[in-house]
Amino acid sequence: MTEPYADSRYAVRPDLADAHRRTVEAWAGPGNHWTAAERLAIVSQVKRARRADALPPWVGPTSVTGLIDDDEILPAVAVDAVWRLTNHPGTLTEDWYRSVLDRGITAEQYVELVSVVATATCLEVFAAAIGAEPLPLPGPADGRPDGMTSPGAEVSTHWVPTVPSGGANVRKALSAVPVAVEAWQRLSAAQYVPPEALVNDLAWSRGALDRMQVELLAARTSLLNECFY
């Protein structure tokens, strides 16, 4: 891949550009529960969902004639879930989550799908915010999903299986699927606050914005997305 955001009129920090480059490369490799081609297809559906005319939350795109290509490789339930997660995250309920599983994907596949949707949304939002083109997608790598699930994962505090730990609930949300954990941690460390400084150094700053400015942006964005957590 060429240097990320080389076309941007604003210089992107090297560590941030590198985190984004590695995120794209990870999409193009096999995950724990989806193939590389399927992971890239999830990213492509995020892009389509963001650019499409808004659908009501309860209308899946696969129910709209002509909206999804006939040769789409993802199962319809995955496409519908991608669009709902992308465009209406504040409307999700446990009943909806259970309906996704009832339509034939596993909890671990769902967790990995959430991870790819969330990270793809992240890179799309960033590129649009700085006025740059989204990073190009490479072709899919060979290989099969390894089927790995984190030891000890079980349904307890979240809808999805998680690995018990003493950290904040959101930090263990994707813990059942190793590639999903790597994906969000890679981005969060470069974009927000390093985990070791999160609550232990409330004055931590990269220099351009102070911690209060960062937290104001974080809180406003979360509220705009109608996120209770």
């Binding site: 995250p89 989550y97 959430v114 969000w184 981005l187 974009q191 942006l217 974080a218």
Partner: peptide, 16 residues
Amino acid sequence: VCANFAMMVRIADGTG
């Protein structure tokens, strides 16, 4: 930061 929290809200709300 905005992009990061567009990610985090989908993780939090998508996983209950």
